[in-house]
Design a protein around this nucleic acid. Structure first.
Lengths: 347, 347
DNA sequence: CCGGTGACTGCGAACGATTGCAAGCGGGCC
DNA sequence: GGCCCGCTTGCAATCGTTCGCAGTCACCGG
């Protein structure tokens, strides 16, 4: 007895001895799935012994035997990107509910690292994968999918429709942003987008064009430009370029919040004020977006929910033991335009 | 052969068959520690076979046998707190170097959850623990330490000097902040501190008092108040209280950056401007502190390095196989005052 | 009274690696 | 020529669970 303390690890065998039964019986008694196989007296005796010894099942041994680790790998570009902490919480909380744990790994934007990182995860026996690094055309993801491991894409998705995904409704979000700017009276709207190898970059750019067309507005050459990555630096670089080429622009729809911050910098360096001279809209509603100078108008979606939903889809897949016959889920989360102070009518 | 693809798992035994040797020999050939035991011809044959089959050692099986999982548990309050993502990167990158992985778990400020969460980590066989939730007087941590598991504290530390820790030099940071405010000409400086159950809250408050005394300034009743948690909400609540009770205050040293943001809100709600009416200094230099309105003057330290250093200490401990005889490391990271726009001379 | 059935429990073989021990083998030395 | 030694390698146990199989026992129905 070691109240409040941490005991050294006790095995099934020791519990068995104390309860006067075979280890296998202890195993059955402790597993909810097989509990009804053991008589109630034995059950009680075993449970008592287990409690007294403070027995905890050794996950490693179980995993070796059952070939399931109750672990999923999570591959994200970088936890430092403020989009991901909340998403991770959604994932981890949902995993905790089903006794799973996550093993997190980063690609730092070098998406091809996925394969090499995956090897490590595989060595550790992950049962499935949540991947936030999908490219539009992603051979690695395709091969993972073919190899039969359960994969769910999150935030971005590849064109491979056999792989389930949870993304924001990029189309609706972009549409809302453009329509809002138009409504404010803007006529010269630029788009500083993300890379076209990402579904987010593609969809948002495509929808930007559509929405502009629907509004009867043109998208002149050089007023919808995409960066090489979704970073403040690229937002700054591309923003400067666009502002220089199109001084008539009074509003910018950025590819995401980080690029929007880059646009802030570009505006400042061009001696123009936000929102008085140029309005800016981001995407993601990242943490502290309401604290920036000016507070950022942006497209919100529920990052936490996105993580939780990905886990749910993954678990469904793991339980069914394969993709099954039903088509892969492609969940799109609702978006909401959050109006703050980075947008205003044009002068 | 399955180029670019993902092969199904191949075992030591299969490699052994292909190389025409015993599995034990393959094991020795593949382990750098024992590699010199096998002849160079055999070695080559084995390596070739392993490469051809794309063999990866099964970490779970290895862990069961060796009783070491190459995994460490990381316990943090909440990954959503912007202090932690960078720290996690420091931890994970350092762990990756030594082939370890991290299993992260959250306490959400309910520090007592540590014990229950630790049980889960123990089940999964973590070799050590990095804990960011230390309380000044922390029975759970004490018992963990006594139980012999390797623990390193990070960011905060308990009074138990037998447990190694990596913290910021809270004392020096606080001193620099106070001295800077004094130098600017402030005479009425308040402290909106963190809970006294945390070493950070304690040390910063204590040093605030010392530094004020050294500057020949008083700390009137009610001008150094601590919150119940280090959050924006508490910063706001306590900030309002202090401002109401001490309208003469022209500068606030906050317990951390989040509380500083709360102070921003409190000032706004009191109709006072920052920095024109009241200067504010934070602590941590969290992500995007330079983007706030106004950009936050704060005490910087290297979060990434903090994580990496914790890993180094932990690894040293794991390798030596116990606390050894040398005293536990208590590393304090250098701090630096980053002057931005939330501070100015008093009117 | 006997065969059958069902409910429990025990037995022992996995899972895939690591490692102490011992055997085989060749060479050097006395 | 015999002995010892060191270098390689194989053997088999082990880590802690799970699970298919089979055995035991009581009870029930014919």
């Amino acid at each position: 007895m070691n109240p409040g303390g941490v005991s050294t690890s006790v095995t099934l065998r020791e519990v068995a001895v104390r309860a006067g039964v075979h280890p296998a019986t202890v195993s059955r008694a402790l597993n909810p799935q097989t509990q009804q196989m053991v008589s109630s007296e034995t059950l009680e005796r075993v449970l008592e012994a287990a409690r007294e010894l403070n027995y905890r099942t050794n996950t490693i041994a179980r995993s070796l035997r059952t070939q399931r680790s109750l672990t999923v790998g999570v591959v994200i570009p970088d936890i430092t990107n403020p989009l991901f902490p909340r998403m991770m919480r959604g994932i981890d909380d949902a995993l905790e509910e089903v006794q799973y744990a996550s093993l997190v790994t980063y690609t730092d934007g070098r998406d091809e690292r996925l394969l090499e990182r995956f090897e490590l995860l595989r060595q550790r026996g992950v049962d499935g994968l949540i991947v936030a690094t999908a490219r539009h055309s992603d051979a690695v993801l395709d091969s993972l999918e073919r190899s039969g491991i359960a994969v769910v894409q999150i935030n971005r998705r590849s064109r491979n429709k056999d792989i389930p995904s949870v993304t924001a409704d990029d189309r609706a979000g972009t549409r809302a942003a453009v329509e809002y700017l138009v409504e404010l009276g803007h006529r010269h709207i630029a788009h500083i987008g993300g890379p076209q190898r990402h579904s987010t970059g593609r969809t948002r750019l495509a929808e930007f064009r559509s929405a502009m067309r629907r509004a009867g507005l043109g998208v002149p050459e050089g007023s919808a430009v995409t960066g090489r990555s979704v970073t403040i630096q690229e937002g700054f670089r591309v923003g400067r370029e666009v502002l220089a080429g199109h001084p008539e622009v009074t509003a910018i729809l950025a590819g995401n919040d980080l690029m929007a911050l880059g646009c802030y910098d570009a505006l400042r360096s061009a001696g123009r004020r936000c929102p008085q001279d140029v309005s800016v809209i981001g995407f993601n509603d990242m943490e502290f977006a309401d604290r920036f100078d000016p507070p950022l108008t942006t497209i919100h979606f529920d990052h936490y929910e996105m993580g939780a939903a990905a886990v749910e889809i993954l678990m469904r897949r793991l339980r069914s033991g394969g993709p099954g016959n039903q088509p892969a889920a492609r969940l799109e989360l609702d978006t909401e335009l959050i109006v703050r102070a980075s947008t205003a009518p044009p002068r």
